[in-house]
């Protein structure tokens, strides 16, 4: 269980997150929604340990992210929006580097790598340099890097951005499957993605959590029974 308690974060003199509180349980795919500049990425960075919140704490299974940083980060993975892969490395080099960072042993690495190469369809490009990969492969490589350690919490910033419809579908199915056992937190603008994947929706507006509900309940807000309309209604457009 990932508990976010009263997180506040300021950057550049501006408070981006105001006292955010929520709790994520295993077996959930959570969609983090919000207009541009609402603080989605900042929140994800706080959850991933990249930013230290000015106030509040992040607790995973009773362990505090600040105090037991390595323990928490061992069970948590984050893929930023831009991918965060090294263009000069080959896919294999990148994945083995990520495995080393997560302190995986050889057996775990072998098993997980074989599985992920197949599941994310990366076998063809394993020896290709990341900079030469298409956007879809790049996203999948970054995802594979994050998932190598089978994290309990997977935090993805706009994971399907730039993918073709087929790839999107494939990835959604994959994440949905993963979310059955673990926590998957995705930030997205695409409402159909929320509809297709999410078990729960967190909506942030101006750095404040304004809605924590299920997609079904969210739809009920407007007469259209449409997430997009509900979203617009809540954010005020």
């Amino acid at each position: 269980m990932l508990v976010v308690k009263n997180i506040t974060k300021s950057l550049g003199g501006r408070t981006i997150l105001h006292h955010i509180n929520f709790c994520l349980r295993k077996g959930e795919v959570i969609a983090l929604l919000g207009p541009n500049g609402a603080g989605k990425t900042t929140l994800m960075r706080c959850l991933s340990g990249f930013y230290t919140p000015d106030e509040g704490e992040v607790v995973l299974n009773g362990k505090n992210l600040e105090k037991q940083r390595f323990d928490v980060l061992q069970r948590l993975a984050y893929v930023p929006e831009a991918g965060g892969i090294y263009p000069d490395m080959t896919v294999y080099e990148y994945l083995s580097f990520m495995a080393e960072l997560k302190h995986l042993d050889k057996q775990q690495f072998d098993e997980n790598l074989s599985y992920l190469l197949k599941a994310l369809d990366l076998r063809e490009v394993i020896n290709q340099r990341c900079e030469t990969l298409s956007k879809g492969y790049k996203r999948r490589t970054a995802l594979a890097g994050a998932m190598l350690s089978r994290p309990e919490v997977l935090i993805l910033d706009e994971p399907t951005e730039g993918l073709d419809p087929q790839q999107k579908q494939h990835l959604r199915a994959f994440l949905k499957k993963y979310g059955r056992e673990d926590i998957v937190l995705i930030s997205t603008h695409i409402m159909e993605e929320v509809d297709a994947m999410a078990d729960r929706v967190l909506l942030i507006k101006d750095g404040k959590l304004v809605c924590d509900t299920t997609p079904e309940d969210l739809k009920k807000i407007t007469p259209d029974k449409d997430i997009e309309s509900s979203f617009c209604t809540i954010v005020g457009r």
Partner: peptide, 13 residues
């Protein structure tokens, strides 16, 4: 430049 610092600093090292 490659936005990898975010990933690197979010690792248990």
């Amino acid at each position: 430049r490659h936005n990898t610092l975010e990933v690197l600093l979010a690792q248990p090292i």
